[in-house]
C-alpha cells in the first residue's frame, strides 16, 4: 500500500496541472483541426501560455460588482472547483492508487456532480445581471435534468458489477469491458456527462453568442478562473469516469503499468471532448431538454431493465 499522503498530493498535483495543461492542449488541437496555428509564442509550441494565463488571472482585478450579493458571489466559483476536485477522491487510477476507495463510490460521484449546479445557480443569481440569471436558470435546468439520466445510466454498470465501489467495477471488467454490454448506457452517460459539465456543444448556460458568457458574465480574475478550471477538471473527471466505468479503468495488456493505461484512455476521451467542440454546432436549449426527457430518460430506464433482466436470467440458468 502506498502512503496515502503521496496519493493525495500526487492526485492534486496531476489534476491541477492537467486542468491547466488542457487549456493549452485544447487551443492547440482546435487550431490543428481548424487549420490555424493556435498559441505558439510563449515557450515551445506555446506551452508557457498556461503559465502566462495563470499569472495574468492572478493579477487581474478582483472585481466584485457593487450590485451583487457579495458573499454568494465569491462563494459560487469556489463550489465548482471544490466539488469537481472532491469527485476525484473515488477515482481509482490504478490498483491501490485511490484517495478513498469507498464502497459508495458512484453515489459519491453523483452527489458531488449535483453540487456543481449550485455554483451555477448561485453565481448567476448573485451576479444580479439579466444574462447571468438567464444562463443560471438554463444551466440549472439542464444540469438537474441530465443528472437524472446520468444516475440511471450508471445503474446499468452497477447491475453488471453488483457494486457501487469503483475498484470493484474495474475489476469486474477483467473479462469484458462494460462498453460492450452497456453500449446504450455508455452513450447516455457520455452525453449526460457533457451536459453536466456544460461543455460545448452543450454550453447553453454560457452561450457566448446569446448570453455573453451567461452565468459568469460578471466574473473576472481568478474567480472566473475557477469556473474555467472547474470546466476543464470536469472534462477530466467525466473522461476518467467513462474509462473507469466502461473501458476497464487501469486494465490493459501488462506491457505498460496500469496507471499509464488509465492515463492513455483518459486522454483519448479528453481528445474526444475537444474534437466534439471543434466539430459540433450548439443545439437550442429546448432541443437539448426535450432530447433528454423524451429520448434519453426512457432509454436509460429501458437499458436498466433489460440489463437487469438478462443478468437475472443468466444467474438463474
Amino acid at each position: 500500500m502506498t502512503n496515502p499522503w503521496w496519493i493525495i498530493g500526487g492526485v492534486l498535483f496531476v489534476l491541477l496541472n492537467t486542468a491547466a495543461g488542457l487549456i493549452w492542449l485544447e487551443r492547440r488541437m482546435l487550431a490543428l483541426w481548424q487549420d490555424r496555428y493556435g498559441p505558439n509564442r510563449a515557450g515551445p509550441f506555446g506551452i508557457l501560455i498556461v503559465l502566462a494565463d495563470t499569472l495574468k488571472l492572478f493579477f487581474k482585478e478582483d472585481w466584485i460588482p457593487p450590485f451583487a450579493d457579495k458573499v454568494v458571489f465569491v462563494f459560487a466559483p469556489a463550489v465548482v472547483a471544490a466539488s469537481v476536485l472532491m469527485s476525484f477522491v473515488i477515482v481509482p487510477f490504478a490498483p491501490g492508487i485511490v484517495v478513498s476507495d469507498m464502497n459508495i463510490g458512484i453515489l459519491f460521484f453523483l452527489a458531488m456532480s449535483s453540487l456543481g449546479v449550485y455554483s451555477i445557480v448561485l453565481g448567476g443569481w448573485a451576479s444580479n445581471n439579466k444574462y447571468a440569471l438567464l444562463g443560471a436558470m438554463r444551466g440549472a435546468s439542464q444540469m438537474i435534468s441530465y443528472e437524472v439520466f446520468m444516475g440511471l445510466a450508471l445503474m446499468g454498470v452497477v447491475v453488471m458489477s453488483g457494486s457501487f465501489n469503483l475498484s470493484v467495477i474495474v475489476e469486474a471488467q477483467k473479462n469484458v469491458w462494460f462498453i460492450f454490454p452497456q453500449l446504450i448506457g455508455f452513450v447516455i452517460f457520455l452525453i449526460a456527462g457533457i451536459a453536466e459539465t456544460h461543455r460545448l456543444p452543450f454550453d447553453i448556460p454560457e452561450a457566448e453568442s446569446e448570453l455573453v458568457a451567461g452565468f459568469h458574465s460578471e466574473y473576472s480574475g481568478m474567480k472566473f478562473g475557477m469556473f474555467f478550471i472547474g470546466e476543464y477538471l470536469g472534462i477530466t473527471l467525466i473522461s476518467a469516469m467513462v474509462v473507469v466505468l466502461y473501458f476497464g479503468g487501469w486494465l490493459g495488456p501488462s506491457f505498460l503499468p496500469p496507471v499509464i493505461w488509465f492515463v492513455i484512455k483518459t486522454f483519448a476521451f479528453i481528445m474526444l471532448f475537444i474534437l466534439l467542440r471543434a466539430s459540433m454546432p450548439r443545439p437550442r436549449y429546448d432541443q437539448l431538454m426535450e432530447y433528454g426527457w423524451k429520448v434519453l430518460f426512457p432509454l436509460s430506464l429501458l437499458n436498466l431493465m433489460v440489463t437487469a433482466a438478462i443478468k437475472l436470467w443468466l444467474s438463474t440458468h
Binding site: 496515502p4 492534486l12 492572478f58 487581474k60 478582483d62 472547483a81 471544490a82 472532491m86 481568478m222 475557477m226
Partner: peptide
C-alpha cells in the same frame, strides 16, 4: 485530508487573487 487540502487550495487561490489583483 484530501477534502481539507482542496478547501485550503481553493481559498488560497481566491485569497491570492484578492491580494494580488489590481
Amino acid at each position: 485530508a484530501y477534502g481539507g487540502i482542496v478547501l485550503i487550495l481553493v481559498s488560497l487561490i481566491l485569497g491570492l487573487s484578492y491580494v494580488l489583483g489590481q
